[in-house]
């Protein structure tokens, strides 16, 4: 068996030193990164299977006795690799604020109430075609102290494993036409031509009449290189 590495994706990710996002100041390396050619450790990855996902983990509106406050939404899409191949049976983790923009986290002290019926944490596995679906409520925007009158646009945090260590990705999904995009240094740290890839699409076809709106968010993890690993399978 010959294993191939993964194509590099320069000009996609935000630079680690992004001064407008103040927390990067003391949290970016100052030495250049060392190029790591892909070997066996980089092209393999954990199998985190169904044992990690409970039957209601994908439905954040049904994890308590009552229903959470807020606009019900379906968030769905596909997880693909850079060659358009679906990534099946792969763990997706999400976390988010409630409808008022408050996280169920001891560090979140902004004066918007917690919702006793909402934890804001979900998990699922992609199906055989790489598809996933969550049911949740639309998160609210929330203030933070990065700059004067700073607000995060509404977003859902996404964590993906793909098939290999190299494909691991943590990102955030946004909603179309958010008026807060212009002043958000986290969103704007992404190179301009790549930013739209973080914005979900309103999906009328997948709304549930008299029940929930729907948004589509496809996620693309890195694709395979055409050339085999430099030291083969070994």
């Amino acid at each position: 068996m010959t294993l191939a590495g993964y194509r590099r994706d320069a000009d996609t990710h935000p630079p680690l030193d992004s001064p407008e996002y103040r927390s990067t100041r003391l949290r970016h390396p100052t030495q250049p990164l060392t190029l790591l050619p892909h070997r066996l450790t980089e092209v393999t990855g954990p199998l985190l299977g169904p044992g990690r996902v409970g039957p209601l983990d994908h439905d954040l509106t049904r994890q308590h006795d009552g229903e959470p406050v807020g606009q019900r939404i379906i968030v769905h899409g596909r997880v693909l690799d850079g060659d358009g191949r679906p990534i099946p049976d792969s763990l997706i983790e999400i976390w988010q604020a409630n409808a008022g923009g408050r996280y169920r986290h001891t560090g979140d002290r902004w004066p918007s109430p917690l919702d006793p019926n909402f934890d804001g944490v979900g998990r699922t596995l992609t199906d055989a075609e790489g598809r996933y679906e969550f049911v949740t409520i639309k998160p609210g925007a929330y203030p933070w102290r990065n700059h004067d009158n700073a607000w995060r646009p509404a977003h859902i945090h996404f964590s993906l494993f793909g098939r290999s260590f190299t494909q691991r990705l943590v990102t955030q999904m946004y909603f179309p036409d958010d008026p807060l995009f212009g002043q958000d240094p986290i969103f704007n740290a992404v190179p301009e031509r790549a930013r739209f890839r973080l914005v979900s699409r309103f999906d009328l076809d997948r709304t549930r009449p008299e029940w929930a709106l729907a948004f589509e968010f496809d996620i693309v993890l890195r694709g395979r290189d055409a050339t085999p690993l430099e030291d083969g399978h070994g």
């Binding site: 996609t12 927390s23 979140d108 990705l169 986290i186 969103f187 993890l221």
Partner: peptide
């Protein structure tokens, strides 16, 4: 297909 960009995990 172009890769989805990374974002911070944030404080929570």
């Amino acid at each position: 297909l172009p890769t989805t960009p990374s974002q911070t995990v944030g404080p929570y």
